[in-house]
């Protein structure tokens, strides 16, 4: 359902603002796929957790069997508080997937790592590990889209927009639940655009 486009790991890109940027790691969870018609739920994917990892471009293609009569698709970016408090889980939720904080419990909803000429850090590195599920640091984001083509929905993820909205000169390192992490999660949500 979601196809990644041209973005490749470890390639150098120039942003609109002339910053040159390289992504070395990009992984995030999406969950709780719900299909609606006129605001009413017509279908909910069971056990709806997906880990998208740029290392494996196939992970950006999600197959869901759902009824045809829907007009909107809703899903979350991240892992909800129920799953965050449920103990050890397997599959893509296994803590060996590198998406779980060990020193303070909770899933990392999104990992984005790389270098940018805008970052005045060692080796120009930035690290965004966005997570947190407890009030007031709940970084789970919910998205809803109108469905036009019901067979094949493509959602663009415009990382360009993330880097134009986040000042990576000062805001380059995030690795714990906090209000700032919530803000980053809110920005991250806005880069998902239906094609």
């Amino acid at each position: 359902m979601i196809a990644h486009q041209s973005l490749k790991l470890d390639s150098l890109y120039t942003l609109f603002n002339k910053d040159s940027i390289r992504i070395t790691n990009f992984k995030f969870y999406i969950s709780n796929f719900t299909f609606l018609k006129n605001g009413q739920i017509v279908f909910k994917e069971k056990n709806s957790f997906h880990l998208l990892d740029l290392k494996d471009t196939n992970s950006f293609k999600i197959h869901i069997k759902s009824p045809q009569n829907y007009t909107q698709i809703q899903f979350c970016i991240g892992i909800d508080s129920v799953a965050n408090s449920a103990g050890a889980m397997g599959g893509i939720l296994d803590p060996t997937k590198g998406m779980y904080w060990t020193w303070q419990n909770g899933y990392i909803n999104m990992k984005l790592e790389g270098t940018s000429s805008a970052c005045k850090t060692r080796n120009n590195e930035f690290v965004y590990h966005i997570g947190g599920y407890q009030y007031p640091f709940n970084s789970l984001q919910s998205l809803i889209f109108k469905a036009v083509n019901k067979q094949n929905v493509t959602i663009g993820i415009e990382l360009n927009k993330f880097f134009s909205d986040v000042n990576s000169n000062t805001n380059h390192t995030m690795m714990s639940p906090s209000l700032q992490a919530v803000k980053l999660a809110e920005i991250f949500k806005t880069i998902f655009v239906i094609e």
């Binding site: 408090s85 050890a88 803590p95 060990t102």
Partner: peptide
């Protein structure tokens, strides 16, 4: 209280 579930407790000392 940084750990919310017994299952996840062991992760903390393993990685500290």
């Amino acid at each position: 209280g940084a750990v919310n579930h017994l299952d996840m407790q062991a992760l903390s000392p393993i990685s500290h």
